[in-house]
């Protein structure tokens, strides 16, 4: 198949940036989206051009490193799929595809499609953990956990921290990301001692980073490659209220 790509190019944080059009030919439908970009980049390098910078690593949908807005949708239109797992068989021959970085004030562009997501790490630093120094843990079977709780905690814990939720949200909110961690830990008995302080600190850090508020549009879960449910946000709000009492 042959494609026309319109790609956001931006030299660095200070550069204004612009869309640049590229033609790519002989694309195999079995290629992944990133492999298609690899082919284009190989050509750009040989032509002495700067290849398109994009983040990626595991290429199996779990590291959370890749992420592009493809035709206006974070990670593209295929549901529950990271950019690296998107395959070209889902595009029409001769399609025009626009590719842009995540856009949100707390995620400044580093170069082209690469953004700075360190705000997420700082939200975890604020309280996204259980304080248990190595070697101090009791036997794993000393506290049984109901299967339903363990499963629900796992579902929330599958967040890969890619930032698609922020990119998709009209308010640029990081609520789904933050709520996923709060929910994961507050569903487990081990997470109880720090439950209040965790919710308070993480929500406050999220606000301090400049992410917007949640207005329940649900765009975040719609694009989430791991399908983190929207009701985690309700859980976060409950925990936050509880903590503020």
């Amino acid at each position: 198949m042959n494609l026309t790509l319109k790609v956001w190019r931006q030299k660095g944080p200070q550069d204004k940036g612009r869309m640049v059009t590229y033609r790519v030919e002989d694309v195999s439908p079995d290629m992944s989206f990133l492999e298609m970009l690899d082919v284009l980049n190989e050509r750009l390098i040989l032509e002495g051009d700067d290849p398109i910078a994009f983040d990626h690593d595991c290429r199996e949908g779990i590291c959370g490193m890749c992420g592009m807005v493809i035709n206006g949708v974070a990670h593209g239109e295929q549901v529950a799929t990271t950019t690296c797992q998107l395959h070209m068989r889902h595009f029409e021959d001769d399609a025009v595809i626009t590719i842009e970085p995540w856009r949100a004030a707390p995620f400044p562009v580093v170069k082209d499609l690469v953004v700075d997501r360190s705000a997420f790490d700082r939200i975890i630093q604020a309280g996204g953990f259980i304080s248990v120094p190595a070697g101090s843990a009791p036997d794993a079977h000393s506290v049984p956990v109901k299967k339903v709780d363990a499963d629900a905690a796992f579902d929330a814990a599958t967040c890969i921290g890619c930032g698609a939720c922020v990119a998709a949200c009209p308010n640029g909110s990081a609520s789904l990301f933050t709520a996923a961690k709060i929910t994961h830990l507050s569903l487990l008995p081990q997470g109880q001692p720090e439950r209040d302080s965790r919710a308070r600190a993480m929500v406050e850090q999220m606000d301090a980073e400049g992410f917007g508020g949640c207005t329940n549009t649900g765009e975040c879960t719609a694009v989430c490659p791991k399908g983190i449910p929207l009701d985690t946000i309700a859980q976060m709000n409950r925990d936050y209220l509880r903590a503020s009492k």
């Binding site: 843990a137 009791p138 363990a150």
Partner: peptide, 22 residues
């Protein structure tokens, strides 16, 4: 054996059975 204890205490959501054990 200590690794499993450590991970569970950190909140690693390992698969469990209906009785609540790993």
């Amino acid at each position: 054996v200590n690794i499993i204890d450590q991970a569970v205490a950190q909140g690693v959501p390992f698969a469990r059975e209906y009785g609540g054990l790993l």
